[in-house]
Design a protein around this nucleic acid. Sequence first.
RNA 1: CGGGGCGUGGCGCAGACCGGUAGCGCGCCUGGUUUGGGACCAGGAGGUCGCGGGUUCGAGUCCCGCCGCCCCGACCA
Length: 481
Amino acid sequence: MAENQGLTPRAQDFSAWYNEAIMRAELADYSPVRGCMVIRPNGYAIWELMQRALDDMFKATGHRNAYFPLFIPQSFLQKEAEHVEGFAPEVALVTHAGGKELEEPLVVRPTSETIIYDSFAKWIHSYRDLPLLINQWCNIVRWEMRTRLFLRTTEFLWQEGHTAHADEADAEAEVRRMLGVYRRFAEEWMAMPVITGVKTDSEKFAGALRTYAIEGLMQDNKSLQAGTSHALGQNFAKAFGVQFQTAAGGLDFVWSTSWGVSTRLIGGLIMTHGDDVGIICPPRLAPTQVVVVPIYKSDTEREAVLQVSDGVVQELRTAGVRVELDAREGMKPGAKYYEWEGRGVPLRLEIGPKDVAKGQVFAARRTGGKAPIPLEGLAVSVQHALAEIQRTLFDTARERRDAATRRDVSKDDLIAMMAGPGGFAYAGFCGDVACETAIKDATKATVRVIPDEEFRSPTPPARCVWCGRPATSEAVWAKAY
RNA sequence: CGGGGCGUGGCGCAGACCGGUAGCGCGCCUGGUUUGGGACCAGGAGGUCGCGGGUUCGAGUCCCGCCGCCCCGACCA
């Protein structure tokens, strides 16, 4: 049958594949408003699972959720110089409402630092009020020039943590802690290996002292900034007068942090695991972890097969597995397979007359391989299989990332790499923005991070890959989303 | 904003160079037969051909203008 039902192969056109994979899985749709997207139930279900996992981690680290307004007085944004400058070009402004012009235009939040610090200034009086650990789940608007489903849309959903601390060390610990949470989420839930590190000044958040990030390498060997954690110093505290009385009786400004991940993670999930058939959901984030497809000819077969299938579904559901029974009539099993594979369901159980007779189901993994599983102890076997699939996805992704990583590259290597296969290039960096710019102009690659110790090369590079002067650090270069 | 591509039933496309009854595949609806990797037969529904002008007896097709979308680049999570 129709060969035209397949997706554009990744190797042929990764962008086309990405869009088609999203459409096939019914994760999202284009909207009537340019740059915006509709997140369909299949896509939103992934987001809900991400939210739940992350929210639990935020709560476990002492954070509480709150909600701040979508509209921010324009003047607020202007109180922090770098912040305005950074966000001004992509801000949407409400100038009219209620049928008349507003006295002061309202910014549609591109991020909530300013309006949150306005509140923090009211809430924080004493060192006893610190640390203040707040998170909010909300939507954000940034008027981007060029958009891409999930990866960069005009409006997107995210989570932004905002915390205030009595001293720099405590704030720094928070910034690192939340970067660690993001890393753990990426690795353990998304099965997406990431490197962590600090951003260069040119890549850091507008208004931050330092920005830390997790970066994953996608299948086209471009890097995706998947989460950021910012040390804001006392910049916003000073701009908004967030002061507190110290234990010693003095007055000081708080040290603050902010950190966020967004629906962009869904794009990362797609580009990390998808294959030419469609997306692949890691089991822990799969809205449907298991689909049961009954197979039969006669009515008697149908009855027996459906009875076993129902029992399987019940058993798995009771065991906490997210399972669906696809008992649609008039559709060939093969057609169902393709449909669920396109949606990324990690495990499929086929149940036919032969399986019923043998007391087994036939399990097909989205990561490859088919094998019978006995009905006896099925729930445990299925959970085992899901855990293995989760691990396989992570291992495969890490091997792919490592295979696309080169260390101690020379200037010529860097140029050749970025003109060719792409990937992560580790090399010495003098720290001069001039070299950063020159490299970007010549290769399109940017410094993704100055990697944390764990990711650094055993022998630190001695010289800058570009200018040859002594290196102040090792950096990771890649083309990025 | 620059470069490239594209707008024709829900989706994918043909028709355009050379103006003359709007077509194909998939999907959808009804009935029947099917069902271990994308079923088949029969019947059926569904289109302001992106929008606005113009040329013409007649425009999906030719001319002018506009709009939108996708991809690549500059800005960004």
